[in-house]
């Protein structure tokens, strides 16, 4: 980098303006050809993603698909092997300090300083973001109110429940009023009540106009607040679009339940070899078949079973819900080809 470029960047940083901000609206997140390898393991393979300001983006994928890696790169905690990621126009590798100012990051697993009181915990992070004490004293009660922890203000962090710690961590993300929230599985390990509380807080944040990128395995619960969904597997984005689009695309998938008089194991083997069968689950009396074919293929499947001599008690078509859909996508089925 020559001296002139260095000076230019310095000026941009001092002004707090990204290189592209003056050229009109910049997407909050812009990822292009992003790859990350750990030795021979490719965690991300040329990922592209753009998220506009104020949008809530749901990131779905099985464990190890690359969600956390993408989020860590956005949070300046990992450097990409190739490609680039920009937050508010700032490249995460070139202007990490500017990026950090703009993001609130909540990792999937995080620790807390147990010996701190809830209020001290927030003061520490507030101070770490350079917020003066006077401002913090006004801000922190509001944050505790937002995450429903006002009554736990002076409780030591190690006495808080997991759900409370999760909410405290969310308040920590908000302490410097970031534009972008990167939330990696914010509801993992929470009981249903705590999940609902978390969702309500997220809805409030959405209403405040924050851009949120959230990964979750409880995405069906969040479907109403997410504007767009991206499905990632083996480090590649395999589907991306708004929620209703994805739902429509997935409705063609069916779950069939076949009850048989005998030879369940054999039938399972047989079904596995049939076209359009993406997944099988056997219980004591029958087999659940995830089926990607249409009516014609379904009729053929029944005929094949009968022709092979299996005695069918019943054959029914179940309703697919979003949860099944996500299970289906994230196990690498052929539903999106």
């Amino acid at each position: 980098m020559n001296k002139a470029e260095q000076t230019e960047i310095k000026v941009e940083q001092e002004a707090g303006v990204s290189p592209e901000q003056d050229q009109g609206a910049v997407p909050m997140i812009e990822i292009k050809g992003l790859s990350k390898s750990f030795g021979s393991f490719h965690a991300l393979k040329s990922l592209d993603l753009t998220i506009a300001r104020g949008k809530v983006f749901g990131f779905v994928g099985p464990n190890g698909a690359g969600k956390s890696t993408t989020m860590s790169i956005l949070a300046t905690l990992l450097s990409p092997s190739s490609g680039y990621a920009k937050v508010d126009g700032f490249d995460v590798t070139k202007h990490p300090a500017e990026v950090r100012k703009r993001i609130g990051y909540m990792p999937d697993f995080f620790g807390v300083y147990d010996q701190f009181k809830a209020v001290e915990y927030l003061h520490f992070y507030g101070a770490s973001y350079g917020i003066p004490k006077k401002e913090r004293e006004e801000l922190i009660p509001q944050l505790l109110e937002l995450v429903n922890l006002s009554d736990k203000r002076d409780a030591y962090v190690d006495t808080l429940s997991r759900g409370m710690k999760q909410r405290l961590c969310l308040a920590r993300c908000l302490v410097h009023d970031p534009d972008l929230l990167i939330l990696d599985e914010p509801a993992s390990g929470l009981d249903p009540r705590a999940r609902i509380e978390m969702r309500e807080i997220l809805l409030e944040l959405k209403a405040m106009g924050k851009t949120i990128i959230i990964s979750s395995h409880i995405l069906p619960e969040l479907a109403e607040m997410v504007d767009e969904i991206g499905v990632i597997e083996h480090g590649q984005m395999i589907a991306q679009g708004n929620v209703s689009e994805i739902q429509n695309r997935l409705r063609v998938k069916r779950i069939l339940y076949i009850r048989l008089l005998e030879r369940l194991e054999e039938a399972e083997q047989f079904l596995q070899e049939q076209p359009h069968v993406t997944r099988l689950m056997r219980d004591e009396r029958g087999i659940h078949v995830h089926f990607s074919g249409q009516d014609l293929e379904q009729a053929e499947l029944i005929s094949e079973l009968i022709a092979a001599g299996y005695r069918i008690i019943s054959f029914s078509e179940g309703q697919t819900n979003l949860e099944d859909v996500f299970l289906e996508i994230t196990r690498g089925g052929d539903g999106f080809e």
């Binding site: 860590s72 905690l77 300090a97 950090r100 990792p107 697993f109 995080f110 620790g111 992070y125 770490s128």
Partner: peptide
Amino acid sequence: GERERQTLNLLLTTQQ
């Protein structure tokens, strides 16, 4: 120790 207690990443995303 901070890394093992999973507090390091939070600290590294601050302005410090």
